[in-house]
């Protein structure tokens, strides 16, 4: 099956992104395809590379990055939600005149159309939120 996943909450604050990750991992282990994980609302904060969780805790962003690199999962951060909350890639930082970017490897910033496309393309779209 081809899955799309929507993550609506930030890391650590809410279990939603953990559950989404465990679900995606289990789906991949069963041989399913994760077409895209789309991060919306505070979920965009999953994609900051500046988070430094305590060493004995999981690193949520790194887990997503590894999933993207190992399984080719498309990790998309919503641009509109990201702009509000200060998540920037290099191009966006330049366009907005900001002095740095903070997006983690394996993530990309794009429009809400990517979410709708996932809904159209995938057999299932599963939403994780608050």
């Amino acid at each position: 099956m081809k899955y799309g996943i929507l993550v609506n909450e930030g890391p650590y604050q809410h279990q939603a992104s953990d559950t989404a990750y465990q679900f995606a991992k289990a789906a991949l282990e069963k041989g399913h395809e994760i077409f895209r994980v789309f991060f919306y609302h505070d979920g965009v904060n999953n994609g900051t590379r500046f988070g430094v969780p305590p060493q004995d805790d999981r690193n949520i962003t790194v887990r997503w990055t590894e999933m993207a690199e190992q399984h080719g999962v498309d990790m998309v951060i919503c641009i509109a939600a990201a702009q509000r909350r200060g998540l920037l890639d290099e191009g966006e930082a330049k366009r907005q005149g900001k002095d740095g970017d903070n997006i983690a490897p394996g993530f990309r910033i794009s429009g809400l159309g990517q979410l709708i496309e996932a809904g159209i393309q995938c057999d299932r779209l599963v939403v994780f939120g608050d």
């Binding site: 919306y40 509109a80 429009g111 809400l112 159309g113 979410l115 709708i116 496309e117 809904g119 159209i120």
Partner: peptide, 11 residues
């Protein structure tokens, strides 16, 4: 905001 964008996809 999602709904406004979705409208363009003619679903």
């Amino acid at each position: 905001e999602v709904v406004l964008i979705a409208a363009a996809f003619e679903q």
